[in-house]
Simulated assay, not measured.
Amino acid sequence: MTSLLTDRFQRGQQEGDLDDTVEAGELARYFHMVFNGLCVYAGGGASREQLRACAARV
Rank of each mutant, 00 (worst) to 15 (best):
M1T: 08
T2M: 01
T2Y: 07
T2G: 04
T2K: 13
T2D: 04
T2I: 09
T2R: 07
S3M: 03
L4S: 08
L4F: 11
L4N: 13
L5A: 12
L5Q: 06
L5T: 03
L5I: 06
L5F: 08
T6F: 05
T6V: 08
T6I: 04
D7I: 07
D7V: 05
R8N: 02
R8M: 12
F9L: 14
F9I: 11
F9G: 01
R11G: 11
R11A: 10
R11E: 04
G12K: 08
G12P: 02
G12W: 03
Q13L: 01
Q13H: 00
Q14H: 07
Q14K: 14
Q14G: 07
Q14L: 15
E15A: 13
E15G: 09
E15P: 05
D17I: 05
D17Y: 15
L18W: 07
L18H: 02
D19A: 14
D20K: 02
T21N: 11
T21D: 09
V22Q: 08
V22H: 06
V22C: 00
E23R: 11
E23H: 08
E23L: 05
A24D: 06
A24G: 00
A24W: 03
E26Y: 11
E26C: 04
L27K: 09
L27Y: 07
L27P: 03
L27M: 14
A28M: 01
A28F: 02
A28C: 00
A28E: 01
A28I: 04
R29P: 00
R29E: 12
R29M: 04
Y30E: 10
Y30N: 06
Y30L: 10
Y30C: 11
F31S: 07
F31D: 02
F31L: 13
H32W: 13
H32E: 15
H32K: 14
H32G: 15
M33W: 12
M33V: 11
M33T: 14
M33E: 11
V34N: 04
F35M: 05
F35N: 12
N36Q: 14
N36H: 15
N36A: 12
G37N: 15
G37R: 15
G37T: 05
L38I: 12
L38H: 03
C39M: 14
C39S: 14
Y41R: 14
Y41C: 10
Y41T: 15
Y41D: 15
G44K: 15
G44I: 01
G44Y: 15
G45Y: 12
G45W: 09
G45S: 09
A46N: 00
A46Q: 01
A46V: 04
S47N: 05
S47M: 03
S47W: 01
S47I: 02
R48Y: 10
R48H: 14
E49V: 06
E49L: 03
L51C: 01
L51G: 06
R52H: 04
R52F: 08
A53K: 09
A53F: 05
C54N: 09
A55K: 09
A55T: 00
A55G: 10
A55M: 04
A55W: 13
A56C: 02
A56R: 13
A56N: 07
R57L: 12
R57Q: 04
V58S: 06
V58Q: 10
V58M: 15
